[in-house]
Design a protein around this nucleic acid. Structure first.
Lengths: 226, 226
DNA sequence: GATACCACTGACCAACTGGAAAATTAAATT
DNA sequence: AATTTAATTTTCCAGTTGGTCAGTGGTATC
């Protein structure tokens, strides 16, 4: 006992062979993570009660303590899952396009971002929930997920600027503008349905948004390489 | 007694002349509203406790019930205040520019939006907090503040498209993209400080953002009218 | 300066909060 | 089948929540 919460338990000399995790345990963990993502993205960390999460998951609430130690660790596990899944989708989509096709890669990035955000609006919502005041969670989030992504993408963006495809100006600002136009708009989808008759759950409107983002932020054509 | 919460108490035949509101009462109401705006925008409606608000205001918590009836009404009063103040700034700024100067008006709108959002990030944050799930509050917010603004601005935006100043496409989508690039980015300012070395509290970077938004979303020049 | 009302205070309530711990059940290993 | 450990359930706790209410102090009006 003792190492229940550490996934990376391939320790060196820990001779004591451990019993394998049961299937039902994996299922309740998944249910709890799904429920936590939903609840945290709706009501934020403070606004979500562990009992609410347990109820959404259809599970007794002390199981949270059992599987994740406490509310904070459950939040980290849930957040980790969202970003890991998103990264997998992203890597897969990007791999399909050759590196020289810079503009096509940017378009793929935007489309992937939009499609994943639609299926999982929590991707942007959880960031927004945590960006409202300084906290240990915000630091953890930026350090582990946001900064790595930012560093990589802004490199690519600088390249697009040099090709004349993306507009001039701070690539950092540009990246974040693109980001909020995609994820930020999807996070607002309920409001947009009310005020603007925009339904970002529909395929057509998501495509329209993708094209608009591309047209606005990447107006130039990539020069032919002969 | 009885009509304490209604500001618009200029009823017709209500003969009973009422005693005027005391100064200290106005002050505590203001303090409570300020504190409520801050707290609600940080932690959302559910995540904010009335005691937290009272504490930030430096006031005993039953005064919330006394002045605003309950948490929900306090939220509405606070939200009302933000949007009313913003509208005042906006109208003032727009009045300074003649109507024919369509592009200049759009630029003024963006700059005013950015400057007000910086001084009051709650403008966008409270919308974001409420857009995460359907609620009576979201309906109230869209009905009373969001839809009116959207209707007006998107009319102007359509005009800019016809002039060739703004890019083609759904004006609704376009407006919301602009909106999140301004308010949505400021709502994320703590994150941007961590990940992207962007400080949206500084005048320079706010101006840079304003110019970038204008360059990206209004790339065309307004045709001369001779 | 007396009176009446407004604004505030302190004590209280039932419901909910995160978490702990003991008791129970189910599954895996022998 | 017996044993041992993992997973779940029930019960409990102290602290917080939104809101009420009777009483107290302060301010305007007469």
């Amino acid at each position: 006992m003792g190492e229940r919460f550490l996934d990376t338990s391939v320790a060196a000399g820990s001779a004591k062979q451990e019993r394998k995790q049961q299937q039902r345990s994996i299922i309740t963990q998944q249910k709890l993570l799904d429920a936590a993502i939903e609840a945290f993205s709706e009501n934020g960390f403070k606004g979500t009660s562990t009992r609410d999460i347990a109820e959404r998951a259809g599970v007794h609430h002390p199981l949270i303590t059992y599987h994740f130690k406490n509310k904070e660790q459950l939040w980290k596990a849930a957040t980790d899952r969202i970003f890991r899944e998103f990264n997998i989708s992203l890597v897969k989509a990007m791999a399909e396009i050759p590196d020289i096709e810079a503009k096509a890669k940017a378009e793929a990035f935007i489309r992937t971002y939009l499609h994943y955000s639609r299926s999982q609006p929590a991707l942007h919502r959880i960031i927004l929930q945590e960006a409202n005041y300084e906290s240990e969670r915000l630091e953890w989030l930026t350090e582990n997920h946001l900064k790595p992504m930012f560093d990589e993408v802004s490199k690519a963006l600088t390249g697009l600027q040099q090709l004349g495809v993306a507009p001039e100006g701070s690539p950092a600002l540009l990246f974040n503008m693109i980001r909020v136009c995609a994820g930020g708009l999807i996070a607002l989808k309920l409001e947009l349905k009310h005020t603007s008759d925009i339904d970002l759950d529909s395929d057509e409107q998501i495509s329209e948004l993708a094209e608009m983002i591309i047209r606005v932020f990447f107006p130039g054509d990539q020069p032919r390489i002969d």
